[in-house]
């Protein structure tokens, strides 16, 4: 399956064209995204800014391969996600992107290290290898001493660090963060943002940050894409 776009240059990380996502029945459709087109370059830090219900989370889920577009195409890492089979989409989530959520989404019954190592389980890595990689990822986010704690034993900021470690453990090319500081107090939020931006800067990772915080968007990213009622504002 060759991409429909004539050619995507090597430094393009994300390219969406006429991306549309409609929910619900045909009789009463809900248009979450209406014909959105944009390009994000490799290593670029982009904020998706918009009010709640503007379609920014929908767009992020499409980039993350958790959802499929109703029409249009979305290329991430050179592949059109709209055309991938289910198992290739899983591979995309596993290897190409790392996702960070507002509500952390850690598995409560597992330790920090186990949560971080979870993607490696599905990658078929051996136990020892997983342990080493999780330990390293947790050290990177400053939680090297808390590997055996369960999420309930960690603060909100620490939980989000664990989630970031999990997102980074496979060294993804694109980092997708959905309101990562939404549940945190401002001091902790600053630390988390600093951690994220430091990482993407040093590793050349593409960052797509969903937020409704104008300041955060302007301070931490190279470019701001504004969404309103499913439209990308010029």
């Amino acid at each position: 399956m060759i991409a429909t776009a004539p050619s995507i240059s090597a430094d393009v990380s994300v390219q969406a064209s006429d991306l549309t996502r409609t929910y619900g029945k045909a009789a009463a459709p809900i248009h979450a995204l209406r014909s959105v087109s944009f390009t994000i370059h490799r290593g670029e830090r982009v904020a998706l800014l918009g009010k709640s219900g503007s379609g920014k989370s929908t767009l992020l889920n499409l980039l993350g391969g958790l959802d499929r577009p109703s029409s249009g195409s979305v290329h991430v890492g050179g592949r059109d996600l709209a055309r991938l089979r289910s198992r290739d989409l899983a591979r995309h989530r596993l290897a190409t992107v790392g996702m960070i959520f507002q509500s952390f989404n850690l598995i409560p019954s597992r330790t920090a290290a186990e949560n971080v190592a979870l993607p490696l389980v599905f990658a078929g890595k051996r136990r020892a290898e997983r342990r080493k990689a999780a330990q390293h990822a947790l050290e990177v986010v400053g939680l090297g001493q808390r590997t055996d704690h369960r999420p309930t034993e960690l603060s909100g900021g620490e939980q989000q660090r664990v989630a970031i470690a999990r997102a980074l453990v496979n060294c993804p090319a694109v980092l997708l963060a959905d309101e990562p500081t939404g549940n945190l107090d401002s001091a902790t939020a600053d630390d988390i943002v600093a951690l994220l931006t430091d990482h993407v800067r040093t590793h050349g990772t593409t960052l797509v940050l969903v937020t409704h915080d104008e300041d955060l968007a302007r301070h931490c990213t190279d470019r701001v894409l504004r969404l309103q009622d499913g439209h990308l504002l010029p």
């Binding site: 289910s86 198992r87 989530r93 996702m99 989404n105 850690l106 979870l118 993607p119 599905f122 999990r166």
Partner: peptide
Amino acid sequence: IREIGIMKAVGAREGH
């Protein structure tokens, strides 16, 4: 269901 969602989000296939 949430745990299943998390697993899928980090790369678990349907088969897994």
